[in-house]
Write a protein that binds this DNA or RNA. Structure first.
Lengths: 208, 208
DNA sequence: TTTTAAATACCCCATATGGGTGATTGATAT
DNA sequence: ATATCAATCACCCATATGGGGTATTTAAAA
């Protein structure tokens, strides 16, 4: 499965789309559509040895979903790149797909010519994503607002590393009592009562 | 600042690159380079009212870093799109930039023609990223493998909620000693020695 | 100018925590 | 058939933790 010629599998329940995609691929230099499965089950039958470079996976399939199929197939074929090709653009579909091991996420309104370029892109180590999808993903990293002072944030980070009062105090060159004061203030600001919860909240709110 | 004509600010310390970029932009139909700052400080001087659509931001600047500058400027100019344009490709740079509010992340080896397309892309609600960067970002969603048993995972989730031995024991209808045993096993599997670190690792490894 | 917030520091004290060690049962894997 | 692992429970003990206060200095904001 070299970089020169790309072998592809399609998993797509709609007959029309499946046909169109495979025709486009086989009609394009450097691309071969090796499989065109109508559901996840038939794709999973060849699990363990899927002799393709790239899988184009629909999400909304009869029976097992494309996301589940991606998870199982990726586990057994880690070198294969999975591109989700779907109409779903909700956050759950996007993030679950990525967690399942997809390397790209394209909407079905993608131009066929662009699709070929995107397939090349994923083989070259990229991650093709439709514009709005990419924006959603990167937006998920945005920080809300940080109620903690810089010093307090420093302390929370050290708590997450498992340091205790004394150890934090040594790093900061202050008294352990001061560290304790900071931690009490942190608890109060985050509305928690112990380290475990504080760290959980701090991470969820992207404070650390 | 309409979609038809795009006004841009550049923040880049290297004179050569700054000049080249601004010349390319001004020489291209539909683009105007309105500012070309040599450092973050001069860009921050116009904070609160940055009359541009897009900022091209370098990271490695003298004084305040491009990431910090992005954070401050984005807070005051939420409608402006920030694209990081840098040589840095380490995870910290990438994720901190996104957390700071960047909507795109391009490496400096980006083709000038592609750059123009990427700027259009960000204005249309996309998030242009160089191939390897996109791959790194989406890879960050991958789940590794969970060394914890179901019961242990349950316990870790309750630890994250701030419950203590007794409270967890009550929820699970087992003895507090059993909970303690579970927690000790969790520590051993995650190679940590206390709750704080355990929760940090569990979240980072997407176990909870 | 006054107030507020952050960073510093200290005290008391009940209890939660973590390390060590050991044991039983049932299920799963070899 | 046997070994391994998950889940369950128990006891000892030193120390870390969190809740309750209080207080000073400095810098920024109102």
């Amino acid at each position: 499965m070299g970089l020169d010629h790309i072998h592809i599998a399609i998993v797509e329940d709609e007959h029309e789309i499946r046909q169109t995609l495979s025709l486009i691929l086989d009609g394009s230099k450097g691309f071969t559509c090796r499989y065109a499965f109508p559901d996840a089950e038939s794709a999973l039958a060849s699990i363990g040895n899927l002799p393709v470079d790239v899988v184009l996976m629909d999400i909304d399939l009869p029976g097992i979903s494309g996301i589940e199929a991606t998870r199982k197939l990726k586990r057994e074929n880690p070198k294969v790149d999975f591109i989700i090709l779907t109409v779903q653009s909700d956050d759950d579909s996007i993030f679950e797909s990525l967690c399942a091991g997809a390397s790209g996420y394209l909407l079905k309104d993608t131009d066929p010519t662009d699709l070929l370029q995107h397939i090349r892109e994923v083989r070259e180590g990229g991650s093709p994503m439709s514009g709005p999808i990419a924006r959603r993903i990167i937006s998920s990293f945005r920080v809300i607002d940080n109620p903690l002072s810089d010093r307090e944030t420093e302390v929370v980070k050290m708590l997450a590393k498992g340091l205790n009062y004394r150890e934090i105090a040594e790093v900061l060159y202050v008294s352990p009592n001061t560290v304790k004061s900071h931690i009490k203030n942190i608890y109060s600001k985050l509305h928690v009562g112990n380290r475990a919860e504080a760290i959980y909240k701090a991470i969820k709110q992207k404070l650390i």
